[in-house]
C-alpha cells in the first residue's frame, strides 16, 4: 500500500486505486490520461490504455491494487518506461506518453507499445513480488526474461535475442527461448514472477 501526503497539490493515480484517505480530497477522472486529445487518440490506437484520476487535497491518501508490491522510482529529468498495467501513481508534474517498443513488447504479451513517464518527481510502479533493480552499464549488459520485465530507466538499447535452434523444433526447447538484452547505461526493474508469454512455452 502506498501512502501519499498531499498539501494542496495533486497526484495522478490509476483509476479506482484509492483505498483510504484522511483529510480533504477531490478525485477527478482524467479523460485520456491527462494527455490531451492527441494522447487520447494515441492510446486508443496503440491499445496502451490507462484510466487515470487526479487526486488533489490536503491530508494522506492511500493507494493499492490487487495486493501487488509497490516500488517507488525517483525521477530527476530522466524517462521511465513502464507498462501501463504496472503504473500505479505519479506526481502530477510528470508527463506521461506512449512509445513504440518494437519486438520486445510483442514478447512480453503487453502489446507493441509502452508508457513513458518523464520529468522530475516520483512514480510508483507495481510488480508481482518486490522488484529487483539491476544496473546496466557498458561492460555489463543484461538479459531479461520478457515475462519478468516491468520497467526501465536511462539510456538503454534493447535487442531481442532468441535461443531458438533446431532442438526447439524437435521439442527439446529450453523454456528460455527469448530474452531482451539491454545495453547502455540505466536501471532495469524485474519482478520475481513471470507473466505468461508466448516465449515461455517454447
Amino acid at each position: 500500500m502506498l501512502a501519499v501526503d498531499l498539501t494542496g497539490d495533486a497526484v495522478k493515480a490509476k483509476n479506482g486505486s484509492m483505498v483510504a484517505y484522511d483529510g480533504q480530497m477531490a478525485f477527478k477522472k482524467m479523460t485520456g490520461g491527462g494527455e490531451g486529445l492527441r494522447g487520447m487518440v494515441t492510446r486508443r490506437l496503440t491499445g496502451e490504455q490507462m484510466t487515470v484520476m487526479e487526486v488533489q487535497g490536503h491530508g494522506t491518501c492511500f493507494f493499492a491494487d490487487r495486493a501487488s508490491e509497490i516500488n517507488l522510482v525517483n525521477l530527476r529529468g530522466e524517462k521511465l518506461y513502464v507498462e501501463s498495467s504496472n503504473l500505479l501513481c505519479t506526481d502530477a508534474g510528470l508527463r506521461t506518453g506512449t512509445t513504440f517498443t518494437g519486438l520486445r513488447g510483442g514478447a512480453t504479451g503487453n502489446g507493441l507499445f509502452t508508457t513513458t513517464v518523464e520529468g522530475s518527481g516520483q512514480a510508483a510502479i507495481m510488480s508481482d513480488g518486490p522488484a529487483v533493480v539491476l544496473r546496466v552499464s557498458a561492460q555489463y549488459p543484461l538479459s531479461v526474461d520478457p515475462g519478468a520485465y516491468i520497467a526501465h530507466t536511462g539510456n538503454l538499447q534493447q535487442s531481442f535475442q532468441s535461443g531458438i535452434n533446431f532442438r526447439t523444433l524437435i521439442g527439446e526447447g529450453s523454456g528460455e527461448a527469448f530474452q531482451i538484452r539491454f545495453e547502455g547505461e540505466g536501471l532495469v526493474y524485474v519482478q520475481p514472477s513471470e507473466r505468461n508469454t508466448i516465449g515461455g512455452d517454447i
Binding site: L2, T7, V11, F62, I70, L72, D91, A124, P130
Partner: peptide, 14 residues
C-alpha cells in the same frame, strides 16, 4: 507532496 513510505514494502530500492 510526499510519496511513501510504502507500507509493507521494501525500505529503499537497492
Amino acid at each position: 507532496m510526499n510519496f511513501g513510505p510504502v507500507i509493507g514494502g521494501p525500505g529503499g530500492p537497492t
